[in-house]
């Protein structure tokens, strides 16, 4: 029983971080109907960003994450203008391949620079004992950070003018344009926010897991699953989707081999797509 609750808590903490990664993917989908296939490599860049800032500059990883978030935002805006904007109204295939080409470029350059050998941020916050449960400090902080990021995103989307613009564009781009919303800039900003969230998630993961330049792929796939769980295009739903996935990952290994986890995850993913493509909470716009 203790083992079960410990592994649920572990999964839950990890779920918050998954949620942030998925939020980035789902935000971009919701606003512009683009599946960002460069999501994984950007998560990996977030990991390496924190790693480099920590090892080369000796800065605290959490300060590193703030810097990485900023760089992620800029990178996303750049990607939008270079690779996505021209095909934003083209059929899905074009945006899928355009973002995938960005994926190839990042992985190609990243592999050449960093190789594919594993790195880790040599950093620890110790752990806390809560009764039978041992909380790893860096995971607990990551979960808190994830909640803060979600709250900040919520406030940004619902309480600020650019946020309202983003929601207007997501709802109906043509109508938003007619009402004077600068839609191109808003799309670029949304893409930037999406990649920023991916980079933050990568940075948080780097504080407790070793990683390689290819490590983002796993989290990209998880982000797909979570986005669909929470309703594609619904950033707040993504947090709950992340928690569900995290808990599932905590519970499943207690009664069957860990290697079955991805089988169940992806079967669930396809089933939800078929039965409730709006996600188990329904898409809120």
């Amino acid at each position: 029983m203790d083992f079960l609750s410990a592994s649920i808590v572990d999964g839950l903490l990890l779920g918050f971080v998954y949620g942030v990664a998925a939020m980035g993917l789902t935000l971009i989908w919701g606003v512009m109907n683009v599946i960002n296939l460069a999501h994984g490599p950007i998560i990996a860049l977030g990991m390496f960003g924190v790693y480099l800032i920590f090892t080369a500059l000796g800065l605290n990883p959490y300060i590193g994450i703030v810097l990485v978030a900023l760089l992620g935002l800029l990178l996303g805006v750049l990607i939008y203008y270079v690779a996505v904007h021209r095909v934003i109204n083209a059929p899905h295939l074009s945006t899928l391949l355009a973002t995938y080409s960005v994926n190839m470029m990042i992985i190609g350059v990243g592999t050449a620079v960093f190789s594919t050998s594993p790195r880790n941020v040599d950093f620890s916050l110790g752990s806390v004992e809560l009764g039978p449960i041992t909380l790893l400090g860096s995971r607990a902080v990551a979960a808190v950070a994830a909640v803060l990021v979600t709250g900040a995103l919520y406030i940004f989307l619902y309480r600020t003018r650019p946020g309202r613009y983003i929601r207007a564009v997501a709802n109906n781009r043509d109508a938003a344009e007619l009402m004077g919303v600068p839609s191109t800039r808003i799309l670029a900003l949304s893409f930037g926010l999406g990649t920023m969230l991916a980079a933050i998630a990568g940075g948080l993961i780097a504080t407790f897991f070793p990683f390689t330049i290819l490590a983002g792929g796993v989290y990209e796939l998880k982000s797909f699953v979570i986005s669909v769980l929470g309703g594609l295009g619904n950033p707040i739903g993504a947090l709950f989707g992340g928690l569900i996935l995290g808990v599932l990952e905590g519970i499943i290994p207690t009664f069957m081999p860990t290697t079955w986890v991805p089988v169940l995850e992806f079967v669930l993913f396809v089933l939800i797509l078929l039965v409730r493509p709006s996600g188990i909470f329904g898409a809120k716009k």
Partner: peptide, 15 residues
């Protein structure tokens, strides 16, 4: 950097 070069060309084609 073959992957990056291929990615760049893919982008050119798509765009």
């Amino acid at each position: 950097i073959q992957l990056a070069v291929a990615g760049f060309l893919l982008l050119i084609i798509v765009l």
